[in-house]
Write a protein that binds this DNA or RNA. Structure first.
Lengths: 251, 251
DNA sequence: TTCCATTGTGTAAACTATACACAACTAATT
DNA sequence: AATTAGTTGTGTATAGTTTACACAATGGAA
């Protein structure tokens, strides 16, 4: 699947500290939405466990830029919605780190790392999951069936989800996760998945429309087995204005 | 005022990297409430500018513990309400760092630092502001007349205030900032100061009481030039329960 | 053609937030 | 001792928001 690049490997392990800040990493929780389910992009280390895609901060690089770079490497996307949400600084967070790779012994990588959590919202269909030279697999996982992850990555993911829930009314979450055109039921299911609760269909529509950030198109979504729903898109200008003033209410 | 400790000084500058993580610092925005004004505790470096009290992370120490330690050193208080609120990772955030102290040239301190922002809520009267061996002064400043601070510390403070405002309904902010017994007008003025807006006296009381987290005492606060207001205290058990479930509404 | 699941729409009731007024109290002033 | 100024304690009416709920219309499947 992915090519091993032993040169790069050795360089990274032995001389990474010349390029990157020590003790500091970035981990990304990349959310997507597909088939009415919230998904998270995970990678699997070579011969190792599943984990959040992450990386390190270059010596002259902003941590926001690091996160963007890491994301672009894994998804092929730039200009992504990215949000720092928490920093994880327990000295014992990387439990069993020593066990993972004997050839890393003595490397800067085996030091203690404090990691900055970012979450990203991406349009599922635009992503081309790409393993890198450190990983074997890169796949979307359903939020309801996340495997056991390395270190404290499950806790990082949980925290991201918690923040995402909390941010639902103040950040352009729908805007970033859905394709340009979408139906009201799709938007509703996104909200329901993130909040993990059911919302009344009619009240949802009323409230979302009252925010005055959507435009209903003439088109309807055909092909479904039932009455064809209207398509909507976000009115970016109104959306941005509403976000500045703070979206009101919540479900 | 503060004693210089040249030994410690030299040790810290030359060998600090053996004790602390490199490139990572912690800065604390310590809020207090006094005379109906929100205050922030600032220190002034020796022969230097005012800044937020901060410090470094020991190699085997949790960043939360670092923040607690830094806070205790500056205020004499332990068991303080502390909340990580943002990490500042711009490589150019420490502008003019080189100019500050020529004797630091070549020291690990002159490297780039990423800093974790914490805010603390303390009871003003319990704090004994103490300069340390790096600083000359340690004083409360009114939130409305903060001086120009070093580096990006004004931005860090602004961000803390923004988060504090946002958190007013989900965190035990009143509980931590006020003395044990307080009057309804005092609590209201705390809210008004943090939110920077006026609130109707009667509606405020109605709403706060409806949260069912306060106990009205038999006592009244005497000595004022007017009608003696009742004293209240927080019912810790009910408060904690309400926080878990999330306080509703907001002003 | 009928059936089924789903969409589009509206209204009444419960709840929450806001605006607003008057009597009681305390110390300072006369 | 009475008056005054400023503040506290309390309640109600109105506007606005959220919630609960029902029925007709549509499009493909049977």
């Amino acid at each position: 699947m992915s090519k091993r690049i032993p040169e790069l490997d050795r360089d990274f392990i032995e001389k990474g500290q010349n390029t990157y800040l020590r003790h500091l990493s970035v981990d990304c929780v990349i959310f997507g939405f597909h088939e009415n389910e919230l998904k998270v992009l995970l990678i699997r280390w070579k011969d190792g466990p599943w984990c959040l895609p992450g990386g390190f901060v270059k010596k002259e690089e902003s941590i926001d830029t690091s996160a963007s770079r890491i994301l672009e490497e894994r998804t092929g996307l730039d200009d992504i919605f990215l949000q720092q949400f928490h920093i994880f600084g327990d000295p014992h967070r990387e439990k069993n780190k020593k066990d993972f790779n004997s050839k890393l012994k003595g490397s800067w990588i085996m030091d203690r790392f404090v990691t900055v959590g970012y979450y990203a919202l991406v349009e599922y269909s635009k992503v081309n999951p790409e393993p890198d030279w450190l990983s074997d697999e890169c796949e979307w996982w359903d939020i309801h069936s996340i495997p056991s992850l390395v270190y404290d990555h499950n806790a990082i993911l949980d925290k991201a989800l918690e923040v995402l829930r909390f941010s639902l009314n103040d950040h352009p979450i729908g805007y970033n996760l859905l394709p340009e055109k979408f139906t009201m039921p799709e938007l509703q299911r996104l909200y329901e998945t993130i909040l993990d609760k059911e919302i009344d269909r009619r009240n949802f529509q009323k409230k979302i429309l009252s925010l005055d950030i959507l435009v209903r198109l003439e088109e309807r979504k055909t092909g479904g087995a039932h009455k064809a729903p209207y398509l909507y898109r976000f009115d970016k200008r109104k959306y941005d204005r509403a976000l500045k003033e703070g979206l009101t209410g919540g479900f």
